[in-house]
Design a protein around this nucleic acid. Structure first.
Length: 465
RNA sequence: GGCGGCAUAGCCAAGCGGUAAGGCAUGAGCCUGCAAAGCUUUGAUCCCCGGUUCGAAUCCGGGUGCCGCCUCCA
C-alpha cells in the first residue's frame, strides 16, 4: 500500500505502527445541519481506504468523531427553539442515514465530543503543566503557539505573521494562539471542569479523543493515519498536531491524508446558490449507489466538480455492471480468489487510484460480455466472474444490489405493474408479428422513460435517465 | 500579500522519463422484424515558450489561465 502524505507531500510506502493493524482517525461532521456532498466525499474516501486496508489483510480500527457541541449548534438550537442535544441528535441521525445510503459503513468507533469532556480536560491540564497553555483573566485557556518549535511545520507555513485573522484577544501571547477552553459565565451551554464552567475548543476535541480512544501506549505516533478534508490541514490539523506533541511525548499521526473539495457546477458550495447542496436532496433524484459510484470516480486528492451531466455519464457506466449482473442473475457459486481481485487491490493500493480500478472493472465487464456471447454456458468461467464481481462489491462497495431493482429506481409498485402490463402486451403483439402494434407499445413505454430490450431469455426493461 | 494545487480528445479522467488506460457522448459495422442491450471499430502529442536528455505529457526555468487555504468549514 502506498499513501500520499499531505505533510511530506510525497507518496510513501505504508508501514503500520503495529504489525497487521491500522489505526485511522478522520475528522467527522459538526452536526448542526444535514450532510452535504463534501461530507459525502470525505466519508466515501475513508470508507474506501478502510475497505482496501481490510482487503489487504489489516485489522483496521477506524474512528470518526461527531462534534456535537459548537457555536453553530448553539445558534441553530436558538433559531429553532430546541435544545442543542436535540439538534445534535437530529443531525447525527440524518448523517448516519445519508451515509448508509451511499454505502459508507459505520466506523469502528464514533466518539462524541460531549462524551469526552474529561479527556479534553486531562489534555488541557497536561498542556498547562508543561507550560504550553495559559489562562487569561476571563478564564479562557489558550495554547501558546510560540512554545512549540514545530508549530506551522505541518502546514508548511513560514511564520505566524500572516495567521493574524483569528480573533484578536489582547491578552493572548501570540496572535496565532487558539482557545483550548472557553469559559462560560452566562446561562448558555457549558460543562463543569477543573477550570470552571466552559466549553472546549474545537481543535482540542480530536487530539483528546484520539489520545483517549485510539492511541496505544509507547508508540511514536498516536495514530497511523489521520484524515479529513483539505481545508482542515490548517489550522485544524496544525493545531491538533501541536496539542498532541506538546501534551505527550509523541506526534499525532504517521500519515496525513486530505481529500479534495467538492464544487457544484464549478461554484463553491453555498446555500445561497441553492444548488444540490445536501446529500439528502441528491438522494431524492438518484440512487445512493449511483452517487457513491460517481463521487468516488475521481482521485480523492483532486477537487471534484459535481454536476448532473457527469453524474448521468457515471450512472451509465455503472449500468454496464448491472447489465452484466442481469446476465448472471440467479447463479451463485463459492467465492474463489481471482486475479481480478489482486489487480483491483494493486490499483487501489497505489494511493487509492480509483481511475485504474474503474478501468479494470470496465475491462472485466467487456471481456465478460464477450466471453458470455461466445459461450454462455461456461460454468467455470462464470464462477470466476461471480467471484470478481463480489470483489467489486467488497472493495469498491457497489454492484451488490439486485440488478433488476437497479434499473427501477424511483418507481412504485403501480408504476411497475403498468410497465409490466405494457411489456406483456407488446410481447403478445410480437408473437403474432403485429409489429405496428408492438412498436406503438414500445413508443408508449419510451414516453414513460422505459427502455426495452429483447433477449434470448425474454424481454427486459429499464428505466432511463 | 503568504502558502499550495491544477491545466491531457466534445465531456469526465488515468499517467510520475521510453513514443497517450478507462468511461460518457459521436460516426461506422455485426446482431435485431425494427430497436435497445452487447461486441467490434472511429478520434488527442498532452495550455504556451525555452531548457536538460538518445528520448518528456511526465524533469528544470519562464509565461498564461483556473482553483484552494491563510476566518467556522469535509
Amino acid at each position: 500500500m502506498f499513501i500520499y502524505d499531505s505533510v511530506q507531500k510525497t507518496k510513501l510506502k505504508f508501514e503500520s505502527l503495529e504489525e497487521g493493524k491500522v489505526s485511522l482517525y478522520v475528522c467527522g461532521p459538526t452536526v448542526y445541519d444535514d450532510a452535504h456532498l463534501g461530507h459525502a466525499k470525505s466519508a466515501l474516501v475513508f470508507d474506501l481506504l478502510c475497505r482496501v486496508l481490510e482487503a489487504e489483510g489489516y485489522d483496521v480500527f477506524f474512528a470518526r468523531n461527531i462534534t456535537d457541541i459548537d457555536d453553530k449548534i448553539i445558534n441553530k438550537a436558538k433559531e429553532l427553539g430546541i435544545s442543542t442535544t436535540e439538534i445534535a441528535e437530529r443531525y447525527s441521525a440524518s448523517y448516519h442515514q445519508d451515509m448508509a445510503a451511499i454505502g459508507v459503513r459505520p466506523p469502528t468507533l464514533e466518539p462524541k465530543a460531549t462524551e469526552s469532556i474529561d479527556a479534553m480536560c486531562a489534555m488541557i491540564q497536561k498542556l498547562l503543566d508543561k507550560k504550553h497553555a495559559y489562562t487569561i483573566r476571563n478564564g479562557d485557556i489558550y495554547f501558546d503557539t510560540a512554545s512549540d518549535a514545530k508549530y506551522l511545520t505541518l502546514s508548511n507555513r513560514q511564520s505566524s505573521e500572516n495567521v493574524s485573522r483569528v480573533e484578536k484577544v489582547s491578552e493572548k501571547r501570540n496572535d496565532a494562539d487558539f482557545a483550548l477552553w472557553k469559559a462560560v459565565h452566562d446561562e448558555s451551554v457549558s460543562f463543569d471542569s477543573p477550570f470552571g464552567k466552559g466549553r472546549p475548543g474545537w481543535h482540542l476535541e480530536c487530539s483528546a479523543m484520539i489520545e483517549r480512544y485510539v492511541r496505544k501506549e509507547g508508540t511514536e505516533y498516536a495514530v497511523d493515519i489521520h484524515g479529513g478534508g483539505a481545508d482542515l490541514l490548517f489550522p485544524h490539523h496544525e493545531n491538533e498536531a501541536a496539542q498532541t506533541r506538546c501534551a505527550g511525548d509523541h506526534e499525532l499521526a504517521k500519515y496525513w491524508m486530505h481529500n479534495g473539495f467538492v464544487t457544484i457546477d464549478g461554484e463553491k458550495m453555498s446555500k445561497s446558490l441553492g444548488n444540490s447542496f445536501f446529500l439528502k436532496d441528491a438522494l431524492k433524484a438518484y440512487d445512493g449507489e449511483v452517487l457513491r459510484f460517481y463521487l468516488l470516480s475521481t482521485h480523492y486528492r483532486s477537487d471534484f466538480n459535481f454536476n448532473e451531466e457527469d453524474l448521468i455519464a457515471s450512472k451509465r457506466r455503472l449500468d454496464r455492471l448491472y447489465r452484466l449482473k442481469k446476465r448472471l442473475f440467479g447463479l451463485s457459486s463459492p467465492t474463489v480468489e481471482t486475479e481480478f481481485r489482486q489487480h483491483l487491490l494493486e490499483a487501489l493500493g497505489d494511493d487509492l487510484n480509483v481511475s485504474r480500478a474503474y478501468a479494470l472493472v470496465d475491462e472485466l465487464i467487456s471481456s465478460a460480455n464477450e466471453a458470455l456471447d461466445l459461450n454462455p454456458k461456461d460454468k467455470p468461467y462464470r464462477q470466476i466472474l461471480l467471484s470478481s464481481l463480489s470483489a467489486i462489491e467488497e472493495i469498491l462497495g457497489f454492484g451488490g444490489k439486485n440488478p433488476y431493482l437497479h434499473f427501477q429506481f424511483g418507481l412504485n409498485e403501480s408504476d411497475k405493474e403498468r410497465i409490466n402490463d405494457l411489456v406483456a402486451k407488446r410481447t403478445e403483439a410480437k408473437k403474432i408479428k403485429d409489429f405496428a402494434a408492438s412498436d406503438a407499445l414500445r413508443d408508449e413505454l419510451t414516453a414513460l422513460g422505459v427502455s426495452i430490450m429483447d433477449t434470448a431469455e425474454g424481454t427486459f426493461w429499464e428505466i432511463r435517465d
